[in-house]
Every structure is written in C-alpha cells, then in structure tokens.
Design a protein around this nucleic acid. Sequence first.
DNA 1: CGGAGCGTTCAGTATTGATTGAACGCCGGC
DNA 2: GCCGGCGTTCAATCAATACTGAACGCTCCG
Lengths: 163, 163
Amino acid sequence: MPTDPPAAVSVFIERMGLSAQADGLPRIAGRMLGWFILHGGPASLADLAEALEVSRASVSTNARVLRDLGVLEATARPGDRQDYYRLADRHYLPMLEGYVERMATLRDALATAERDLPDDWRDAQSRLVDMHRFVDTARDHTRDLIERLRRDEQGSPEGDGHG
Amino acid sequence: MPTDPPAAVSVFIERMGLSAQADGLPRIAGRMLGWFILHGGPASLADLAEALEVSRASVSTNARVLRDLGVLEATARPGDRQDYYRLADRHYLPMLEGYVERMATLRDALATAERDLPDDWRDAQSRLVDMHRFVDTARDHTRDLIERLRRDEQGSPEGDGHG
DNA sequence: CGGAGCGTTCAGTATTGATTGAACGCCGGC
DNA sequence: GCCGGCGTTCAATCAATACTGAACGCTCCG
C-alpha cells in the first residue's frame, strides 16, 4: 500500500472545515475544499465520500454548493460515467464575493430605511447615511480587490497538466 | 402618547438581526445594533429589553458581546445606577476586523500545513502557497481599508453632544 | 429487456447554539 | 439591617440546520 497520509493532512482538512463553518458554510464543504487543496486532481464523489468518511448524500449536496459558489468545477473523463470535480482556478475568490454580497444586503437595508423613515427622524437618518457611506466604501474596496485578483495570474497557473 | 414608530423601524431592526446572523452573530445582537442606529442615544438594558421584547438575560449577554467587539460603549449617568450603552464612534469597523480575524485563522491553517507537510507533496505545497498569498493580499488590503477609515472623520462626528 | 452503478432527493436524526426564566450577588435607599 | 432594583449567570428549552440512510430515477452495459 502507498505511504499513508501524514497527520498534517487531516489536521489541515479539519481546520478548513471549522474555517468554513465560521464563514457560514457547512463543515463538510470546508473539509472538501481542504481535501482538494491538498490532493487537487479531479475526484469523483465516491472518492470524496470515502476519503472524508462521510455519506454520499452529504458529498453530493456540498459538491453542488461548492460548484454553485464557483469553488469547484465539474469535469468529466471520456468513457467514465462518474462526475468528477476539481478546484476552480481562483477558488478563493468566492469567499470575497460572499463578503460583497453580504454588504449589498446590508446596504439595501440601510437604503430602504432611509427612504421609508420620515424626515423628522433626523438623527437616525444621519446615522443611516453615515453607515451607508461606510458600507459603500468597503464594498467598492473589496470589489476592486476582486477585480485585481481576477486579472492577476496570482502565481503559477493552477493546472498541473498531466492528468 | 407619543406617535408610535413607523413600520420601517421594526423592518429595519429585523433586517439587521438577519444580517448579523449571516455574519455569525446572534440575531438579537443585530437587532440591538439596529435599534441603536435608529435611536442612538444612551439606553439602559431595561430600555432595550422592553423595546425589543426580549429577555433581560439576552440583552445583558449580547450587550457584552457588542461591547467586546467595540460596537457599543458603556456610559453612565450621575446619580443613576443603571448601565447605559451607546453606539461607538465607528461602530461598523469591527465588522471588517472580524473579516481580518477570520482570514488570520485561515492563514494560520495554511502556514501550518505548509510547514508540516513533507516536501514531496509538491502540488499540495504549491496550492497552499497560492492560497496563502491570496489570503495575505486580502488581509493586507482590508487592514489598509480599516486604517484609512479609522483616520477619516467619515462625515459628521457621531456624538450629538447634548446628552 | 434486465441489472448495476451513480447522483439526487427526502424524511428523520442529531447536534449546535440562541434564547429564556429563575436564582444569585451586589449596591443604595429607607 | 432589611428591601427593591439592576446586571449576571446557569440550567433547561427551543429552533435551526447539518448530516445520514434509504428510496428513487437515470443511464449505460450486457
């Protein structure tokens, strides 16, 4: 049998699971991401279920989540009926995009309140505007960062070719 | 009786609750923040409990959370035994600081994996480094933004003086 | 056609964590 | 020294949701 994986592997995968949880994602989604960061290559859902010791149902669900987010990409092998997934090129960008989305939601709440609140709520209005301005600034800033990272090669191209 | 608050008030407060939840905070913490944005002035825990129709226990707990985050500040009134709280000057900065912290945690997981993983895991190492670089960039970027916002007056000073 | 492999879906379970009510400790007024 | 108000804490409850096992549908192979 091949040398079994170092302890650092499962430690990392587990930490990615917790990290995902802190970001509002299912823990298993984070573990899957961790696994892909370490093992990269296209993997079938069955592979993942076995490697992570979770049900195929969870793997299926979370693979969809990660694919919709843009973290994973679906691939296929000629003559193989299984679905294969691999890390998307800049798989970390969706994290930032998630921040931007949350800020947009917040922004909307502020804007709506500004619009619907009577004018004589002066102090409230001024605080709303103040925070609104902040959220816009932060959102623009983050969007710029995303744009920049999307343009940059960000180091060596991910695909290692020989598949 | 004074004119009762417009519907927009509770709508906004409720949306802030949900927004907080999306950021990993208790919903009540978000509602409290929303209430303070609208009503500003120093308020006692009893005031909040009544206004938001939640238990005093929850208010107490969440006030502590928000205070520790730096969203609220404790004040006092001479001759009054109650604790009063008010919005901190740049109460929105902790949100960004939270992002930075989460990124730091992620960064640590990556760095540890890089260190502990054997050298012959070449592809894994390169993916780790790639993501590591991204996280550092994003973190630095956000830190700069925080610094800038902390310096700026960001519009009119919040304190309305006559308290 | 029949069967096997694969991914998805759904009802049920389990776990996590927010929220509450009650008990406690503290302080100031009487 | 007792009483009442206030904030905190803790066990218990409740709600949200991640996760699972089983059933289903589909597709390809024989």
